[in-house]
């Protein structure tokens, strides 16, 4: 069995006629304009003085207005630490949480696609009972670690005894739906409980708090997306590898993951984008040290109204690294790089 790398360009299944090509380009350039014009506006706003923004609209630097780097100077020199500190935090939290999320999420997604899970109603009932006991302990005034231990103890006990008899249960699709349903509650309803959660763990204002929250928040998305990519990987390959004696972990690492690279890359990109840009949780979990950039952006609207010029600079420097990442990763989404002729 071998996977042969093939150049993307070599697979030309459909040749494109000239009118079709012209129409395609018209459509593509039209959307490019729609996408780029607001960004252009951002870029010129970052070069304007407040006066020029408020008296506008001015479009072209040097012709309509004299560009100035005042706003850039303010962000990089006047704010200095207040720009670089959140920047570092954003990079660290974004990359770490994304890497963990994509790893754990892909594993779970693979499990959901290739294995059969059956969670017995008995197990679920045990969990609910254990949870109720834990909650009761805390409500009655006990410390939360005691509630946690009591809950886990009861859960294990029930699982080993009562739950064994009750065989019917929920399957893979239900587990997947349960996961995605965790994203249905708007963050405004969960942010204070999450705050208390980390306050109890004494993790407020740390990278860890943000990384853990983002991992938990974005896992369902990774699971769902990766599930579909794994489904499209031919199962025959894995079967033959299993016959050759490869362990499930090895199959996952050496066969499945490489084959799903386009999906992995796409998923990685927007989980990164989500973590990079998250606002509300970051606002509450951080104060002096771990603040991230979205807060700096939002903070440019204070008592004097939105400071468009500073905001534009901040948005531009914020998307810079993500764009670089997208350019670097884009080629992995290209057809035929890894997926393609597979002979085994």
């Amino acid at each position: 069995m071998a996977i042969i790398r093939r150049r993307g360009g070599s697979v030309s299944t459909t040749s494109i006629s000239f009118p079709a090509m012209t129409l395609s380009y018209i459509a593509l350039f039209a959307w490019t304009f729609v996408v780029l014009f607001p960004l252009y506006w951002l870029a010129v706003t970052a070069l304007k003085t407040p006066l020029e923004v408020n008296a506008g609209p001015f479009y072209i630097p040097w012709r309509d207005f004299q560009p100035t780097l005042d706003s850039w100077h303010y962000i990089f020199f006047d704010l200095r630490e207040d720009t670089f500190r959140p920047y570092t935090n954003t990079v660290v939290v974004g990359l770490t949480s994304t890497a963990i999320t994509v790893l754990l999420g892909s594993m779970a997604a693979y499990g959901l696609v290739r294995m059969r899970y059956r969670v017995g109603y008995g197990a679920i009932a045990s969990f609910v009972v254990a949870l109720a006991i834990a909650v009761a302990v805390v409500v009655a005034g006990g410390p939360w670690p005691l509630g946690l231990v009591a809950g886990i103890g009861v859960f294990v006990l029930l699982l080993q005894t009562v739950a064994r008899r009750w065989k019917r249960g929920v399957g893979n699709d239900d587990i997947a739906f349960w996961m995605i349903s965790q994203r249905m509650l708007p963050p405004v309803a969960t942010v204070i409980p999450i705050y208390i959660f980390f306050q109890q763990l004494q993790l407020l204002d740390t990278w860890a708090a943000l990384i853990i929250s983002y991992t938990a928040a974005h896992l369902p998305i990774v699971v769902w997306l990766m599930r579909d990519y794994f489904q499209s990987v031919p199962v025959e390959l894995e079967e033959s590898a299993a016959i050759d004696g490869a362990s499930p972990y090895r199959i996952f690492r050496s066969i499945v993951l490489p084959l799903a690279v386009p999906g992995l890359v796409a998923t990685f990109l927007f989980v990164l984008v989500f973590a990079w840009n998250e606002y509300l949780i970051a606002l509450f979990l951080t104060s002096a040290n771990a603040q991230t950039l979205p807060m700096t952006v939002a903070a440019q609207n204070a008592t004097r109204g939105p400071q468009w010029w500073y905001m534009s600079v901040l948005i531009l420097i914020m998307i810079g690294p993500v764009i670089a990442m997208a350019i670097a990763l884009e080629r992995y989404i290209a057809r035929g790089l890894l997926v393609g002729a597979v002979k085994g």
Partner: peptide, 8 residues
């Protein structure tokens, strides 16, 4: 467009 923070 997706890469810009939603507030932005």
């Amino acid at each position: 467009p997706m890469m810009i923070t939603p507030v932005g």
